[in-house]
Structure formats: structure tokens, C-alpha cells
């Protein structure tokens, strides 16, 4: 539990010690995400890690196509976009030409595990020294809640209205376990943001992933299980509970591969 302790921020004049505030690189504006969406939490964790590592001026991020497409509105560092799924390819082009910068991609499950599967696998296999933050919420949120490659069996979506049928739609895909045998992939961990406790773990994993890159160790990816209350058709609290009871059962939390 010691590692979970929260850093004390020096108090403003006349105040008690502030122990938690918005990280400096997360712009102080409203985000466009639905209530209870995990993106807001994950954006913040990334910013906290970047601030704590002091790497803001070296960071180049690649925003995905999906709900987080305008992540650059919230992040106060250099960002570019990529066509849907090509995110790791764009990251490769940046990192190879700017090896001293810290390059990370932020991708959803459609982006990373469907249209960009080839780019993901080959970036890992080449051992690109980049970091991927993979947000797995099991649906295409931006386009209206269609089935994602990670949608659980039986889950109802806009394109699996009677629930995902394994016979018709196939099985949900576990990307970390696919990447694990590749020698180029160095650090792979699955975390979740369904509770404060798990969110603190998620931050540690993201920290380790960025450190993996800073230390030149190679490809790192953190899969973050995240809530989509809107397209799961439930309250944020129920969505968080669903991750604990259902999603994390199929996608077990923990380190899949480390060095």
C-alpha cells in the first residue's frame, strides 16, 4: 500500500496541505466525454505521469480516431493525429526520427485491435521504443456504440442487438496476450479505472510504461479497461461494477509481460 500514497502538494498560503489537484499538463477545461467515461481519468493519469517524470517538453503524442480524437484539446504538449488504426505507424515515424523525444499513442479498442491490428503487432514486433495507452471499453463510442473486437460475448451493442454471438461475431480479442510472445514487446500490463484503488494501480503501470521508454527498453503497452456508461446502457456506478464483475474476468488485470 505504501506505493499508493498520494504525493503532498505544497499548500497555497492560508490553506491546509493540498494533496490532490489537477496536473499542470491537463488543461483546466471541461472535457467532452459522457458522465462516468473512463477517458477523463486516463487522460489525467497520463498527465500526472508526464508531470512527475518531468518530460512534458519531450513528449509527442498521437491522438486516435474515436472518442479521444480531440485529446489534444486537453493535453498541453505536442500532439498529432493519425488515420484510424495507423497510430503506431505514425508513432514509429516520429520516434525513429526523434529518438530523444518521448512518443506515446492513445488508442481505443477499434483503433488498436480491429483496423490497426497489423500496425500494433508490427510496431511491437520491431520493438519500437514507444508507449501505447490502449483504452478498452468494448464498444465504438464515437460512432454510436457498435461492437468492438473486445466486446464481450452476449454484450448488446448497436451492431449486436441481440448480444454478441460467438458463432456469428467470433470471440473477443485479448491483445496483450497476443503481443506477449513477441520478443520486441517488453512491458505489457492490463489495468482498470473502475475504482480508485485500481486507478492508482493504473497510474503505476502507465508510469512504468513511460519509464520503459525513457530507459530505452523498448515497446510498452498498458491496456486500461474503461467504462462506457452511455453505450453499455447503464449508470456510471453500474458500469464500474460491470468491469469488476464481468470485463475483468475475461480480461484479467495484472502484468502480462515485464523485463
Amino acid at each position: 500500500m505504501k506505493k499508493n500514497r498520494i504525493k503532498v502538494i505544497p499548500a497555497k498560503k492560508g490553506e491546509t496541505n493540498r494533496v490532490f489537484a489537477r496536473p499542470a499538463t491537463l488543461r483546466d477545461i471541461d472535457n467532452h466525454y459522457c458522465a462516468g467515461c473512463g477517458h477523463g481519468i486516463i487522460h489525467r493519469l497520463i498527465c500526472e505521469v508526464i508531470d512527475e517524470l518531468g518530460i512534458r517538453e519531450k513528449v509527442i503524442a498521437i491522438a486516435p480516431v474515436g472518442c479521444a480524437v480531440i485529446a489534444y484539446d486537453y493535453w498541453d504538449f505536442d500532439v498529432t493525429e493519425a488515420p484510424h488504426g495507423r497510430t503506431p505507424a505514425v508513432a514509429t515515424g516520429i520516434k525513429r526520427t526523434r529518438p530523444n523525444n518521448i512518443v506515446f499513442t492513445y488508442q481505443g479498442d477499434g483503433d488498436l485491435a480491429a483496423i490497426g491490428t497489423a500496425e500494433t503487432i508490427h510496431a511491437a514486433n520491431r520493438g519500437e521504443n514507444i508507449t501505447i495507452i490502449f483504452v478498452n471499453n468494448g464498444v465504438y463510442g464515437m460512432t454510436g456504440g457498435q461492437m468492438a473486437p473486445t466486446t464481450l460475448a452476449g454484450q448488446k451493442t448497436a451492431t449486436t442487438i441481440y448480444g454478441r454471438s460467438l458463432r456469428r461475431e467470433g470471440y473477443p480479442i485479448r491483445m496483450l496476450e497476443i503481443l506477449a510472445p513477441l520478443p520486441g514487446a517488453r512491458y505489457l500490463e492490463r489495468v482498470s479505472v473502475h475504482s480508485a484503488h485500481e486507478t492508482l494501480r493504473a497510474k503505476r503501470a502507465i508510469m512504468k510504461a513511460f519509464k520503459t521508454q525513457v530507459d530505452g527498453k523498448g515497446f510498452s503497452m498498458v491496456e486500461v479497461l474503461s467504462m462506457c456508461p452511455t453505450y453499455w446502457g447503464m449508470s456510471a456506478i453500474k458500469a464500474a461494477e460491470r468491469i469488476r464483475s464481468d470485463v475483468a474476468t475475461f480480461y484479467p488485470l495484472g502484468v502480462v509481460k515485464t523485463y
Partner: peptide, 20 residues
């Protein structure tokens, strides 16, 4: 880089170009 596809290759170029 011998890319995994033409899609990846052009987007690697996009990235390298974005880097200046």
C-alpha cells in the same frame, strides 16, 4: 523501414514529416 503494409509506410512518412 520495410513496413508491414503500404498503409503503415505512408503513415510512418506522415510521422517523420510531422517531426520536421
Amino acid at each position: 523501414i520495410q513496413a508491414e503494409s503500404e498503409l503503415a509506410a505512408i503513415n510512418m512518412v506522415l510521422g517523420a514529416s510531422a517531426s520536421g
